[in-house]
Design a protein around this nucleic acid. Structure first.
Lengths: 221, 221
DNA sequence: TACATAACGAACCGTACGGTACGGTTCGCC
DNA sequence: GGCGAACCGTACCGTACGGTTCGTTATGTA
C-alpha cells in the first residue's frame, strides 16, 4: 500500500481521467462543503468506481490532498512582467493586482478549499492548511512582494521591509472581506465592487509608502 | 433601557448546570474541532445524560447554537468610557483597542468557534456564521466605530464614513493574521508581539486619518 | 481467438455518531 | 413519609460513511 501523499506530491500531473474526477470533486466540494464530498458520492458523480479512487489516491485524506494540489497547479501562471513604468502606470499595476487578489479570494473554489483547510486545522497530523498556504497563498504573496520591490527599485515606493509592506497592502485590500465570505456573510452593496475597493486601497497604501517624488501621482485616483 | 436588559437576560438564559455543560462543550470544541464535540462525548465529559442534552437544546444544531450564544454572552463588557483625551491619550486608547482585538481573535475559543461557523457555512439553513458575526463581531465593530467617532468629535481624526474608517483600521491591525491562525499556521517571530503590531498599525492608521492638528502626535510612536 | 490489464459497479463490513427509550436515583415540595 | 419532576447512565436503533472484496466488462495485444 503506497503512501498516497508521496505519489500525489511527486507527480503533480494527473492523468486526464484523474483530472476529470478531481474537477468533479471540486464542484462537489463547492456545493456542500467537506460533508458534500464522500467517496461514494464522488464515484457516482464522476462515473468511476470507489476502487479506482482508493487506487489512485490511497485514502480520503489523499483525495483531499490531491484536490488541493490539483487546484493549485491550475493557478500557476502570471509571471509579472517586470517593465519600468511611470508612476501612473505603476499605480495601475498595483490596482490590477489588488483587484485580482480580491477576485481570487472571493471565488467559489477558493472559498471552498479554504473552508476545507480550516476545518482540518484541528487535526495537526494532516497539514492540509499548510499545503493550501504553501501552494496557493505563497505564490500570490511572492508576486505581490516582487511587485512592491519593483516599485521601490523604480523609486515609486519607499520602505525597508518588503514583507511588512506587502502585509500592509494585503490588510488594506482585503480587510475582513475574506473572513466574512468564509463565514457565508453577504457583502454590503458597494463592497462587491472590487474595482473601486482596489482603487481605494491602493490610494491608501501609496499615501503610506509612496516616495516623495511620486506620492502625489500615486495617491490620487 | 428595557429592550437591552430584556435581550441580555434572555441571552444568559442558561441554568448553572447548563452553563457548566456548555463550558465543557467549549473545551471539547477547542481541542478536536467540530469533530471533537459529539453528544456522547459531551455527556461523558460533562457527567450528564444525552437525554438532558436533547431536552435542553433540541438537537445537535441547537447545542452548537447554544454554545455560540453562551460564549457571546460572556464577551459583553467594556462599554468604552467616553472621556475627552489629548492626542497622546487618544492614541493610547487606539493602541489598546487594537491590542485587544488581536488578542481576542487569536484566542483559543475564538478560533474554535470561527472554525466551527466556517465549517457550517455551506449549510445555509443553519445560520451559525451569521449568529457568530452578529453576537460577537458586531459588538466589537460597534465599539471600534464608536471609538473612532469619538476621535473625530475631539478633532483627533478626520473622515466621512466611520464604517469605512473602521474597516481600514481592522485591515491594518489584523491583516492576514486571523486567517493564518484559522488555518493552523504558526505566527512568525515578531508577529506574535501583539503590542508592537498594534503600535505599528495605529501609527499607519493615524497617518491616513489623523487630523492636521494631531497627526504629528498621533503618528509617532 | 486467447489472454491480460484495468476499471466499473454493486454488494458488503465495521464503525461512529445522532437520536431515543428505559430503569434507577436524587432532590425539592406538599 | 410520599410524590413527582428532573436527571443520570446505559443500552439500543437507524443511518451514513470509509474502506474492501468480488464478479463483470471493456480494451488492447500477440
Amino acid at each position: 500500500m503506497p503512501r498516497a501523499a508521496d505519489t500525489a506530491a511527486q507527480d503533480s500531473d494527473f492523468t486526464p481521467r484523474q483530472a476529470a474526477v478531481l474537477t468533479c470533486a471540486l464542484s462537489l466540494l463547492v456545493e456542500g462543503g467537506e460533508k458534500g464530498l464522500t467517496t461514494a458520492g464522488l464515484a457516482r458523480a464522476a462515473n468511476c468506481s470507489k476502487e479506482s479512487l482508493y487506487k489512485w489516491f490511497g485514502d480520503r485524506d489523499g483525495l483531499l490532498e490531491a484536490v488541493v494540489t490539483f487546484q493549485a497547479s491550475k493557478v500557476r501562471p502570471l509571471g509579472a512582467s517586470e517593465s519600468a513604468l511611470d508612476a501612473a502606470g505603476y499605480r495601475r499595476r498595483l490596482v490590477t493586482f489588488a483587484h485580482e487578489l480580491l477576485s481570487v479570494l472571493a471565488g467559489d473554489v477558493s472559498l471552498a478549499l479554504n473552508r476545507l483547510a480550516i476545518g482540518q486545522a484541528s487535526r495537526p497530523e494532516s497539514p492540509l492548511g499548510r499545503l493550501l498556504v504553501e501552494r496557493g497563498k505563497h505564490s500570490v504573496t511572492a508576486r505581490g512582494r516582487a511587485l512592491l520591490s519593483a516599485g521601490r527599485r523604480q523609486r515609486h515606493l519607499e520602505f525597508d521591509d518588503a514583507t511588512a509592506a506587502y502585509s500592509t497592502f494585503y490588510g488594506l485590500v482585503v480587510r475582513d472581506v475574506h473572513l466574512r465570505l468564509l463565514l457565508g456573510d453577504a457583502l454590503e452593496p458597494g463592497e462587491d465592487d472590487f474595482a473601486a475597493q482596489a482603487e481605494a486601497a491602493v490610494s491608501q497604501f501609496c499615501r503610506l509608502y509612496g516616495s516623495q517624488r511620486s506620492v502625489e501621482t500615486l495617491s490620487t485616483s
